[in-house]
Design a protein around this nucleic acid. Structure first.
Lengths: 334, 334
DNA sequence: GTGAAAGCGCTAACAA
DNA sequence: TTGTTAGCGCTTTCAC
């Protein structure tokens, strides 16, 4: 493969002139430019990015840590991130971490190894927590599920408000026994949603019953299992709040198997508004959040960090809305 | 950030010895090794991968071109690819191309720019088709939707056989008017599936009716639209074959809206067996294919190509099976 | 077993 | 405007 010297030779100029012609053409005479461009074509020359990056100490790579790419919501986030990265001339180094912290750390440290310029973390784990306290933190942005210690810029949803709004919506429909299928036990995202759920209950004067809460892991199967527990209760809930759409769809299957109807016998809500939410039967009432915007904003903010431009805001909160569909109905008077 | 010279100074050895200690520890005296390792820790040293790669002309990056990451099937493929890449010490540069050829070309050419060692293409488009004929083809593997010109190693499904088997399954149930909702007009994958469909009809002595075929783009909405057309026909099909599960689920919604029952009034089949296929109502009869294995095998083969190891097989065909669920039933005798 | 030194391809500071 | 040259951090050959 040809290199810059080869092109310089062909064009009868110095390597510096070739480099200039490529980086800042206006600093070169038109006729020189012409000669160089011809030589570039003739040699089939492409700058060796490895050398360019090495020399200029900048990779153009962004690491994105994704807990589970097979989760539709995250897939959409990545899609948005990819678009934004490409538009800005950056590339995405993808890591499907499955929540394994050592993997997250290892990938995040590609920044220290000068293999990436920054990191997007979509989970509430600080991959640099063990970094020597003296070390400067590399550019990192935390989106979707965020750590609220103020250490990193974040892009998040007001999960508490959203969960509260959705729960209140169910209460308004007359429901008072509302089951909650949570995500994992410890994630802040799921704790916020639990808090929103509790707040809505409290404001409506409904006592919180911990029997009505169970844990899952955001998968279809977790929703299925969770619903089994809920339906097995002596005094079962009349509405079920699943912390994401996948679990709601899993729960839906279980509810139908039990011979119950949604929403006549039990109302069901999800969270995220993945495309499938509108295609299940009945379509899901859920919280819509701008999945792709999470990825786009995260990339944009990260690039500002990398390029040392001031961030307009360190903590961005994206809007949600309740999308009411057929899976919810007023509590039937028995 | 410290560099190799700093470590050498701290350890009281030469940079060559530091490099050797890190790359091939056994070529260094234990006591020297000890000194170097101590110095590495003390300095908080991490090799600059940019420099390592530049020097050794190897990036450890693999470009993966994905038509649509938000498509569940592809998300699973990527998940498998990521796992295999990581296990082998490679990283994945993700590009969600949305089928835009100039984007695919641009990313694939990162190989020419020494930014990646190889390319995985999940679509039947040759990103190097315009490459000068003289140029050596870089390591590339074509998976899922493959080009069958023999130019690249491939990992595919026998789409013809799978579509034929699935169609035959419907025929066995007594169906003779079977609608087909295809993917895009030109993709080989969808042409193969069409061929399989036609072959099954032919062998059963059923005349092919082009009225029963319509085109989609593998999205939920395409299935919905396709089903609308099918159901509007005067003499409508008694079974519907959608070329992926997303379209089948889209069609399912439309069919139910029309007040028809699946499978009593119309049988429905999909393709891929995405997790959601088992959670829709009724669950989908479909073709199961090992989505993650596509990604894993693609990465494994690509790495063999990169490392110039002989490929055990240039064209790998992964197995499928019919997964019969509740969306199909024998044709009702009217 | 270890060190000295060349050099990967490029950019940028400086000189002309 | 263009050329000369140093050097980014590392690996690797070649001496010792």
């Amino acid at each position: 493969m040809s290199n810059i010297r080869e092109v310089a030779r062909l064009a009868g100029v110095s390597v510096a002139t070739v480099s200039r012609t490529l980086r800042s053409p206006d600093r070169v005479l038109p006729q020189t430019r012409e000669k160089v461009n011809t030589a570039v074509k003739q040699a089939g020359y492409r700058p060796n990015l490895m050398a360019v990056q090495f020399r200029s100490q900048k990779t153009g790579n962004l690491v994105i840590l994704v807990p589970a790419i097979a989760n539709t919501f995250f897939a959409q986030v990545i899609s948005g991130a990819q678009r934004a990265a490409q538009a800005a001339g950056y590339r995405l180094l993808l890591c499907d971490t499955q929540g394994r912290e050592e993997v997250e750390r290892q990938f995040a440290e590609l920044v220290y190894a000068h293999q990436a310029d920054g990191v997007i973390q979509l989970r509430a784990y600080d991959p640099f927590e063990t970094a020597t306290s003296g070390a400067v933190l590399p550019p990192i942005v935390n989106a979707c599920e965020v750590i609220s210690n103020g250490r990193y810029p974040t892009i998040s949803l007001d999960n508490l408000a959203a969960a509260k709004a959705l729960t209140t919506y169910l209460i308004t429909l007359g429901h008072r026994r509302i089951g909650l299928i949570k995500g994992s036990r410890t994630s802040p995202l799921t704790l916020d949603r639990l808090a929103g759920y509790r707040k809505a209950l409290r404001e409506a004067g409904i006592r919180f019953d911990k029997e009505l809460v169970c844990h899952g892991d955001f998968t279809l199967n977790a929703g299925f299992i969770g619903a089994s527990k809920m339906l097995a209760m002596a005094h079962r809930p009349t509405a079920l709040f699943c912390e994401n759409d996948e679990m709601a769809i899993g729960a839906l299957k279980r509810i139908k198997e039990e011979g119950l109807r949604v929403p006549e016998d039990i109302s069901l809500v999800g969270f995220d508004d993945i495309p499938m939410a509108n295609y299940c039967d009945p379509p899901l009432t859920t919280i819509s959040q701008p999945a792709e915007a999470f990825g786009e904003r995260a990339v944009e903010m990260l690039i500002m960090l990398i390029e040392k431009k001031p961030l307009p805001a360190r903590h961005v909160v994206l809007p949600f809305e309740i999308t009411a569909r057929g899976s919810t109905a007023p509590l039937a008077i028995v």
